[in-house]
Every structure is written in C-alpha cells, then in structure tokens.
C-alpha cells in the first residue's frame, strides 16, 4: 500500500499500538487461567504422587489397626457410601419434585420467587451451620442420636439446592412444543408432565443427582456432630449406627492423631481415595451431560 496519506499512516501506527495492547491484555487473561490450572495441577499432583503408593488391596479392604497407625480405610469407605446413599434418598425426590413444581406448576408469582430465593440462600448456608441444624433437629428433636440417618438427612438437605438446580435445567431443556402438544390433545397437566416432560428429562436429572452425590460424599463439617465417628472397630449395621467417613477420617489423620507425621502416608492415601471417588462421580456426570446435550440437539 503506497498511496496512504499521512493521516491514515498515523492511524496505522496507533493501530499497531492498540493491537499490541490487546495482545498483551489477552495474554494476561490467558495467564490467569494458566495460574488456576497450575494450582489445580499442583494439588492433584501432590496428592496423587504421595497417595497412590499407599493404595493397595489391603488399604481399601482392611479396617484401621493399632491406633489407626496401620491398616486400611474400609470402614470409612463403607460409611461414606451409606451416608451418601441416605443423602441421595432424601435429596433426589425432594429436589425433583421441587423442580417440577417450580418449572411446570408455579411458573410465576410470589411463591415461586420466594422458593427460588430460599433455594439460592440455602446454597449459601455454611456447611457447619447445617451441621448445627442437624444436631438440633435430627440428633436431638427427632431423637436419631448421632447416626447414619441424622448425618445422611443433614447432607441431603445440604445438597437439595444442587439437585433442584440440575433437575430444573433438565426440565427447561424439554421443548415447549411437547407440553403444548400434550395439552392441546386434552391431557391434564400431570398426564402431560408424567408422559411427555419427565421421560426426556431423566438423563439430565441423573446428572444433577450425581453432582449432588459428589458434593455429599466430600462434605465433612455437617457430619462432624451428626454421626461421624473417630474410630469404630465394626461396620455400621443399621441407620442408627455411627459410622466412619472418608473426609472425616482424613481430617483426623491430618490433625487429630497422636502421631500426625507417622500417619501422614495414610492421610495421603485417604485423600487420594476421596479425590478419586469425587472425580469419578463428577466425570460420570459430565459425560452423561455431554451425551445428553448431543441427544437433545438431534431433536
């Protein structure tokens, strides 16, 4: 380009400057994501490196021995499984029904707004406060004592907002034309919801359920006083038993044990197992969602 007049040339150098600024700025933004990525990698690397060596068949299937300085974490795995199961049994029906109500029945209005505000605020209630609530309501008022049931129900209420949000997202993805088509044929609301809205929404809801599960499995604070035990020589045999749980076990090995540095490898092993468990749950949720989205696009 030879015929640029001076004015345009000036703009040109300015443009170079502006482009340079933009490149630098975008680089900084990208850098921030790299920082986050590095943080994540350091955490995962450290725990994997020091934890994976501890993992063995015995570690996963044995109970702790000799004052928790030896042996495995089997009772903690079982306890986490049970307590998460109870939490799911509480959160899933309540969450899905709430989502159906919000998305299909009370589309607008004051009650809907109030429920939504409550759910958003519930999601922000500190987990330790849920623990206190669980103590006051389930352990004492309902007389469950510290138990799987009390801890599971506390965790279930804690994960309710996650379940509702995910279930609602799944319901929202169902095209409006199904609903209209059903109603125009003279279906009642419930017939329409049951036969046309819920079936295509099930995979999406499952995603929400799994996300809630992984949240519940990793929580510690709510079960501190509602049922988790320091050490139990036996497995829980009823919903009213106390139990060991992976996150609480890690907490104890890391801070409460009399030989903290001695049991550090066990702590790393526990942390690794907990991470793997939570990630497997999350990963299956992500994969499910991915497949489900593709499917929805085909419609």
């Amino acid at each position: 380009m030879k015929i640029l007049n001076p004015d345009l040339k000036k703009t040109n150098t300015e443009q170079v400057h502006r482009n340079w600024t933009q490149t630098a700025a975008f680089l900084c933004l990208r850098l921030s994501l790299i920082v986050v990525f590095l943080i994540l990698m350091v955490i995962l690397y450290d725990i994997t490196k020091k934890g994976i060596g501890v993992i063995s068949w015995l570690f996963l299937t044995e109970a702790p021995r000799t004052g928790m300085t030896e042996g495995g974490i089997f009772p903690a795995i079982v306890g986490t499984f049970y307590v998460t199961l109870i939490a799911t049994l509480v959160a899933v029906p309540l969450g899905i029904i709430t989502a159906i109500y919000l998305n299909e029945y009370a589309l607008q209005g004051r009650l809907n707004r109030l429920i939504r505000i409550s759910l958003r605020n519930m999601a922000g209630v500190p987990s330790i406060v849920f623990g206190l609530f669980g103590v006051a309501l389930f352990v004492q008022r309902m007389g469950f004592r510290p138990s799987l049931l009390a801890a599971g129900m506390t965790l279930g209420l804690l994960t309710l907002p996650v379940t509702v949000t995910a279930a609602e997202e799944a319901l929202k993805a169902v095209p409006k034309s199904y609903r209209e088509g059903g109603l125009a044929l003279g279906a009642t609301k419930w017939q329409m919801v049951k036969s046309l809205v819920l079936p295509p929404a099930v995979p999406g809801m499952l995603t929400g359920v799994i996300l809630g599960l992984s949240r519940a499995a990793g929580e510690t604070a709510p079960i501190l006083f509602t049922g988790a035990a320091f050490f139990l020589p036996y497995l829980p045999d009823s919903p009213f038993s106390q139990f060991m749980a992976l996150p609480y076990h890690l907490f104890i090995l890391a801070t409460q044990h009399h030989d903290i540095s001695g049991v550090r490898p066990l702590a790393y092993g526990t942390a690794f197992v907990l991470l793997v468990l939570v990630f497997m749950l999350n990963l299956s949720a992500v994969l499910l969602r991915y497949r489900y989205r593709k499917q929805i696009k085909q419609f």
Binding site: T98, I115, W190
Partner: peptide
C-alpha cells in the same frame, strides 16, 4: 386428582422456605 398433585408439589416446593426458616428458628 390434579389439584391433589399440584398441592402436594407445592408443599414440597415450600420445603426450602421451611428449612431456611427452620435453621433460623432452631439456631
């Protein structure tokens, strides 16, 4: 039947409000 279902759902939906108030009250 439709109304029964609707009110059942509504009661469930209100649970979040009740829990939040319950936390406040119990604490």
């Amino acid at each position: 039947k439709e109304n029964a279902i609707k009110y059942f759902f509504m009661a469930n939906g209100m649970l979040s409000i009740i829990i939040l108030l319950g936390i406040f009250y119990l604490l």
